[in-house]
Amino acid sequence: MFKAGFGIRGFSTMTPLMNSAVMLTPKLAARQFPASNSTRSRLRALKRKEKKLKKQIIKDVNTLKQHQETNLSLSVDPVLGNEKCVFIQGMRQYLKDTTNLAQGFTREEVEKLLYGAEKASLEKIGTNNALYESTRALEEKKKRAVLTILHSRNTNKADKKTLAIKYAKENFQRFDGDTGSSEVQAAIMTAKIHLGMDHLKQAFKDKSHLARLNQLVQQRQLTLKYLKKDDPERYYHVISRLGLTDDVIMHEFSISYQYLQDYKVFGDKELVKLSEKQRKKKEALVALSKRVAEYNVLAKQNYEKIAQLSDENQ
């Protein structure tokens, strides 16, 4: 069956490989390359081996595929969404921004007001040279003190949350002063969720906070589901801007310990203990995926080898 002079032939394919284009599939990992001087019995043994291997490979690949298809993972983090979301990055920048001061003040207005105050106190002293310089210095000192007190670095969390909500409203409102449309609601909830997750990372024992966060995530799902029914075009636009995807909204979800472990909210901490049976099952799956990866590597090597041999023959 195998004739070196005639052309390279695999056991499995009855047509010469030179003529037919070989597809790169995991099945190729089973291919055997007997030496030209091998005996008839050796050839038969190798043929049997190839057949057996091929069967195993097909079985493994299909099992893994089926597992992956039934256990579809969500495309993004269902709580935080896409990491590269521009809205969230913008919000973080807005909170850090020095043009925003605490308690709803802006840098512009404070500068103007303090200038007015300085003018007023200077007018009061008139053209007194001795007092002029000292008054100016005092006003300068006051200004620095006010700007330090109102600096975004020195605000509390509630203040930051108010700012974040303001940012969300400004970005998603349909018209000026819109506070209730679905997209504004969803954006505000997203902002709250992101700030809440920051807190949760530091205080992992705050269980009531975790529960509130869970409520928020589900409320956001509900609002967005309504928007999908009401105005699908707007819905897709909003979720893409919030860094979410359709499957995240439509799947049943709640913040569980499994979620916290999978997305490494508290680092590599083990939060869900598996039973002996579950552990074995998981190990088997890991071994399977490792095996399939090996098949792929071997198949690629064999593919290159076949190409090389066919080149030599030509």
Binding site: F87, N171, P232, E233, Y236, H237, S240, D246
Partner: peptide, 25 residues
Amino acid sequence: QQFARYEQEAKERLADREQSILQEF
């Protein structure tokens, strides 16, 4: 099919939006 189209359009619109957000800042 409509939803699939909207999803595609949303991605394109997002790219424009990113630029304007940066500009506003």
